[in-house]
Simulated assay, not measured.
Amino acid sequence: MSLKLDDIKKARSRIGPYINKTPILTSSLLNQWLGHEIFFKAENFQKIGAFKARGACNTIAWLKEQGNRPSKIVANSSGNHAQAVAYAASSFGIPVTIFMPEYSSKIKIQATKSYGAEVVLSKTRIITDEKVQEAASEKSVYWIPPFNHNQVICGQGTAVYESLRDLENVDAVFAPCGGGGLLSGSLIATRGLSPKTQVIGVEPLNANDAAESLRKGSIQRLSTVPNTLADGAMTMAVGDITFEYLKQLDDFFEIEEHHIVYWTQWLTHLLKCRIEPTCAMSMEAVRRWLGTKKTKKRVLVVISGGNMDQATTQKIWQKDWLGVIPTSII
């Protein structure tokens, strides 16, 4: 089934009571430096601190709408999706068990528990995935995957849907790629509301399974857990549903770790709020894309989340990059 704008609209209506309509931020200094207008959809101010609340809430609301309320929800995730499903299930009064690898952010594990979920930790992502499949085979148990699900995609797409209803004449939308759910939903919303606006994906070079998949024309899976500070993009492979949408993107960028560090520092400073490395890396793609343009552009960047533990924070700030302004970065 090919999803359309109407599916995003229905999702936005379903999740209205359960999510925040997040703000759009700008930095006049950044705009002055780069010579373009850049807008940030601040999903770090979303419920659970990330856009993932949208997809989780929409999926459960859709199940209820279909008369298919499960007796239990299960999910597998290393971070924000875990918290999102825990929050959504709690909001609908449904018991939930989340399966997470042990290397997940400690703060995200604790937050998932705080939303009322039972958390089961495993040594590897493979074991985690096996356990959630086993749990999902039980009667009246529903598995909400992190990205490869139509209703998850529709929920995630509501972030850009909201943005493009508030902003006019946007030339390009940038969003990070983990499993591709946010990008897929963003593409559907953009094509429906603003067909001339480009949609551009961004991924860590150290976790570039989506880029490799697009180059080779088939889904490529990483052989090991990637070494990247962008923990929201550590997905081993995109899904068969999301890949079909990723193939329709206008461009795709792979970003090195030092650029991820740089923009996490600078966006935190310029926007005065906590921002995850996973979405901060999109700004390097924006900078490169704008560098090829001869006229002033209006760009939307999805700030996908603001959940970052102390260990990652320390790695981000080992070297101070705020002495190097964005006009001179190489």
Rank of each mutant, 00 (worst) to 15 (best):
L222H: 02
N206Q: 08
I241Y: 07
G180A: 14
V261W: 01
L187S: 01
S104L: 06
H269F: 13
Y161G: 02
S304Q: 02
K108H: 06
L3K: 01
H36N: 09
K319Q: 13
Q318N: 10
K272R: 15
D250M: 08
K9C: 03
K247W: 06
L30M: 05
A159F: 01
L63A: 09
I275R: 11
A311K: 14
E256A: 10
W33A: 07
S2Q: 12
V261G: 00
A53P: 03
W33K: 11
S163W: 09
F243Y: 12
T268R: 07
A311S: 15
V85G: 05
G179D: 00
I38W: 03
R12S: 14
I127T: 12
A11D: 07
G323D: 12
E162N: 07
S27P: 12
A233G: 03
V119Y: 15
R298S: 09
S104F: 05
A211W: 08
V132E: 07
S304L: 01
E118G: 07
A311I: 15
V225E: 01
E254K: 08
S13N: 09
D320P: 06
E130C: 07
G185L: 09
I24T: 07
I24F: 12
E65P: 01
I107R: 04
G306N: 08
F40D: 03
F174V: 08
I329T: 01
L193I: 07
A42L: 09
L322G: 12
V225S: 00
K315C: 11
E134I: 11
R221S: 15
T112W: 14
S304F: 02
H269E: 13
V299R: 04
A175M: 13
C177I: 15
F99L: 06
I316S: 00
I219Y: 05
W317P: 08
Y161N: 05
K293V: 02
A136F: 08
H269I: 03
T112R: 12
R221F: 13
A86L: 08
I19V: 12
L193K: 05
L25W: 13
A135Y: 06
G180H: 14
K64L: 13
S90K: 15
N150G: 00
G178I: 01
K108F: 02
I98G: 10
V225D: 00
D251N: 15
I330G: 01
Q310R: 00
V302F: 00
H259K: 15
S218V: 06
K10G: 11
T312C: 06
Q156I: 04
F45K: 15
Q66K: 14
Q110L: 14
V286E: 04
L121P: 04
T158N: 10
I255C: 07
M283W: 01
T190N: 09
L167I: 13
I126R: 13
K216G: 00
L246R: 00
I109M: 11
K294S: 15
I219T: 04
I107M: 07
T26W: 10
